[in-house]
Simulated scan of single mutants.
Amino acid sequence: MNNMIEKILDHRSIRSFEDRPLSAEQIHAIVECAQAASTSSYIQAYSIIGVTDPEKKAKLAELAGPQSYVEKNGYLFVFCADLYRQDIVSEMEGTDVAEALESTEKFMVACIDAALAAQNAALAAESMDLGICYIGGIRNNLQEVSRILDIPHRVIPLFALVAGYPLKRSDKKPRLPQSNVYHENGYQMKKPEFIKQLEDYNGTISDYYEHRTNGKRKDTWTGQMAGMLEKKSRLYMKDYVEKQGFKKH
């Protein structure tokens, strides 16, 4: 096992940071690593917004939860699916690419490109012994997030990434057993075995929470997921995505 694998396997989300900003060199290196990620057909359909304005960070922290660590961290990055750049390309080259940009395929390309870039950024930050946490909560109100960040047409803020010097390191959360997520030569759907794996995982997670909270919690994973999925959330998303010029066909 090499250092990179050890670092990846040691990942945990950090939600408490020292009051210590990242340096310009660190930020540049993190963004440079994000840009080194694979990109579909070289389209590079994403943008990254670094947020340093205290008022904007406070507003984003409130919209995201509220989540205090969105405001108090070493640096806040917002990753966006971005096809605005391709609109500019169309103007420069005198072509009409609207139908392609509004397709579900290009929506997926932009989301995937942004996710790949973000994971490179996360790994770069962790290689510097920084802690990171992804913030999906900015999607609670993308209209307001878009206003705060001056988001143009054909751009969608997907999630944020906070990075900084950990004040407190949380415990690692056990992942699903590999046999539950990895299949060879086709999807191996043997339902009784699948359920047994999830039941065993429930025991692992319940023990994790009981130990972490000194007996105050004994949640199971399937119980958490069922409860979360029962709640209706962010039902405005389809309209917002289409309004931004994505996923119209």
Rank of each mutant, 00 (worst) to 15 (best):
9 L>T: 12
11 H>L: 11
18 E>F: 02
20 R>G: 05
20 R>S: 13
21 P>Q: 06
22 L>E: 02
23 S>D: 06
25 E>W: 05
30 I>A: 03
30 I>W: 02
33 C>A: 15
35 Q>S: 09
37 A>R: 07
40 S>N: 07
40 S>V: 00
40 S>G: 08
42 Y>W: 15
43 I>Y: 06
43 I>T: 02
43 I>H: 06
44 Q>N: 13
45 A>E: 01
49 I>T: 13
50 G>Y: 13
51 V>H: 08
52 T>F: 07
55 E>K: 14
56 K>L: 11
56 K>V: 12
59 K>L: 08
62 E>Q: 10
63 L>N: 00
65 G>W: 02
67 Q>W: 04
68 S>Q: 13
70 V>A: 06
71 E>V: 01
73 N>K: 00
77 F>I: 04
78 V>C: 12
79 F>I: 03
80 C>Q: 04
81 A>Q: 08
82 D>P: 01
84 Y>D: 15
85 R>Q: 12
88 I>L: 14
94 G>Y: 00
96 D>L: 09
97 V>T: 12
100 A>M: 15
110 A>F: 00
112 I>R: 00
114 A>C: 11
118 A>G: 12
118 A>N: 07
119 Q>S: 05
120 N>Q: 11
122 A>K: 11
123 L>Y: 06
125 A>D: 01
126 E>V: 03
127 S>R: 05
130 L>F: 07
131 G>T: 05
131 G>C: 01
134 Y>T: 03
134 Y>V: 00
137 G>R: 06
138 I>K: 04
138 I>H: 01
139 R>A: 09
141 N>T: 03
143 Q>I: 08
145 V>H: 05
147 R>E: 01
148 I>Q: 03
148 I>R: 11
154 R>F: 12
154 R>N: 15
154 R>L: 10
155 V>H: 05
161 L>Q: 10
163 A>V: 13
166 P>D: 00
168 K>L: 11
173 K>F: 15
174 P>N: 11
174 P>V: 13
175 R>F: 15
175 R>L: 14
176 L>D: 07
178 Q>D: 15
179 S>A: 11
180 N>K: 10
184 E>N: 14
184 E>A: 13
185 N>T: 13
186 G>L: 03
192 P>N: 04
194 F>M: 09
196 K>T: 08
197 Q>L: 13
198 L>G: 03
198 L>M: 12
200 D>T: 00
202 N>S: 10
203 G>E: 14
203 G>R: 05
204 T>P: 03
207 D>C: 06
207 D>G: 09
208 Y>E: 03
208 Y>K: 10
212 R>E: 12
213 T>W: 04
213 T>L: 06
214 N>K: 10
218 K>R: 08
219 D>F: 02
219 D>H: 09
221 W>N: 12
224 Q>W: 10
226 A>H: 07
227 G>N: 05
227 G>L: 00
228 M>L: 13
228 M>P: 06
228 M>H: 09
228 M>Q: 12
232 K>D: 04
235 L>D: 14
238 K>I: 05
239 D>M: 06
239 D>K: 15
240 Y>E: 05
242 E>C: 08
242 E>K: 15
243 K>A: 15
247 K>Y: 15
248 K>L: 09
248 K>S: 04
248 K>H: 02
248 K>M: 01
249 H>D: 14
